[in-house]
Computed example of a mutant assay.
Amino acid sequence: MTDPAKPTAVGELTFERAVDELERIVARLERGDVALDESIAIYARGEELKKHCERLLNAAEARVEKIRLDREGKPAGTEPLDEA
């Protein structure tokens, strides 16, 4: 059983849960009703969450880039996700 007072390790969060927590942190900081010490702590947690989300997005993008189908619908190689 997890301790509700102890937050989940950032690396264990799914992308969706990390974004949700990050949004809640941003909302609390924007309201300005958080003590200075707590603001610093949750800001640091927010930075960790942001980096975790970036890592997950980069990994997902790399997987998508590896997929390219030929005319028969079979994987044929890789191509960049965003072609300009």
Rank of each mutant, 00 (worst) to 15 (best):
C53T: 13
V34W: 03
E21T: 00
R17V: 00
E72A: 10
I40S: 12
K51W: 12
R17W: 12
A9Q: 11
A27N: 13
K51E: 14
H52I: 01
P4T: 01
N58M: 06
S39L: 04
R28M: 14
H52P: 05
R45W: 12
D33G: 04
P7A: 02
N58Y: 02
T78S: 13
E16S: 10
E12V: 01
T78Q: 10
P80A: 08
A60F: 05
I42L: 14
P7V: 00
R68E: 07
A5P: 01
G11Y: 04
R68V: 00
R55E: 05
E61Q: 11
R17C: 07
S39M: 10
P75R: 14
L49R: 07
E30F: 13
A5Y: 06
R55G: 00
A59C: 06
G32V: 02
D33P: 04
G73N: 04
R71K: 11
A27W: 09
P4G: 03
A5E: 08
R28T: 02
I25S: 00
A62F: 07
L56W: 06
E54I: 06
A18K: 02
A27M: 13
R31M: 15
I42T: 00
I25N: 00
R68S: 07
L36A: 15
K66P: 00
E48R: 14
R55F: 01
R28W: 13
L69Q: 10
L29N: 03
L57W: 07
S39W: 02
K6D: 06
A9D: 12
E47F: 09
T2I: 04
V64K: 12
D82T: 04
R45L: 13
A44T: 04
V34F: 06
R31T: 05
T78L: 07
L29E: 11
A27P: 08
L56N: 03
T8R: 15
I40K: 14
N58K: 15
G32W: 04
V64D: 05
D3W: 06
D20F: 15
R28E: 13
G77A: 11
L81H: 04
K51S: 14
V34M: 08
D20L: 14
F15M: 09
A35D: 09
